[in-house]
Amino acid sequence: MAKKKLAVFTATGCSACENSVLDVHFQISPVTPWADIAFWPYVTGSQWQDLDHVDRIDLCMFAGAVRTAADRKAALKLREKTRIMLAVGACSAFGGMPGLVNLAAVRDEGNSAGADEGIDPALPGTESRVSALSQIVDVDYVVPGCPPPKNLLWSAIQALLCPGECTSRISYAASRLPERISQCITSGILPPKGGTFAGEKAVCASCSRVKEEKKFRSAFRPYAIDPDPGRCLLEQGVLCQGIATREGCGGLCTAAGAPCRGCFGKAEAVYDPGAKMVSAVTSTFDSANADEIEAMSNEFVDLAGTLYRYTMAAQCALPVGPAKDENDAGDVL
């Protein structure tokens, strides 16, 4: 059987997702009988020309948001060659932190994310707004996270690259995946298109902390409080976004006392992550007095940047940022 071809690429991002792929470690070696790395600039130093010698990529792991004209071209080019496009990480899945640039359009009207012109040496021009991969090309599957945990990455690689063939098939990741996807992995067929390799419920479902009556009088930023171990962070006044965020991570951050930052994007049943968090946070205010409530509400700074930290570009119900500009794409690659 012909070996499959794997491509890995990061657009606008920090490459931590690629490190996460490397972190799969000794487990990545069982893949090599089934797949060759055809394109992976970060690790093998591939050039864009190398893609021309490849007929078809079977699995492309695309990390990073689309911020520059070069990113857009890369996304289009890889999509053209690729059978299965996998968005890896929060940036590629929903815009990630680079997506917060879009807020600039609201904060000072007219002075937005800003395309830079006439800079020498010529840099790839920035587009007027940051997009998630799915807003540019068709995406088949998603692995969220910042960066994605390696068990989820590994289950995605197994499910998409060597369904039913890999010798080291695992079940530990499958137990956290939505039932349909885990069934597909264990029976060796491709999961339904559009699937997300993560849980379905909210992070609270896998968080180990005890949740009691949620009431607080004052909100704390994470550095300002040493939270009680074992008690829900939100009820101690820390803005933990677990309640609006998709699970799959196993509640790693909350277990260590850090509030959830929402890197898995919104949970399946949530309409808008910010609105959900507003509802969750305000229901914990221990007051019925309008002035007191207003004062408590004013303690929160940078609401949009906090509640949509990873999801501004793709999951915010009220699209923010300047209109997409078709002329943005320059000739860069």
Partner: peptide, 15 residues
């Protein structure tokens, strides 16, 4: 009432 203030701030930040 509890929701309204925070929701208003969020909406303001979203334009």
């Amino acid at each position: 009432l509890r929701r309204s203030f925070l929701l208003k701030s969020l909406l303001r930040e979203l334009g």
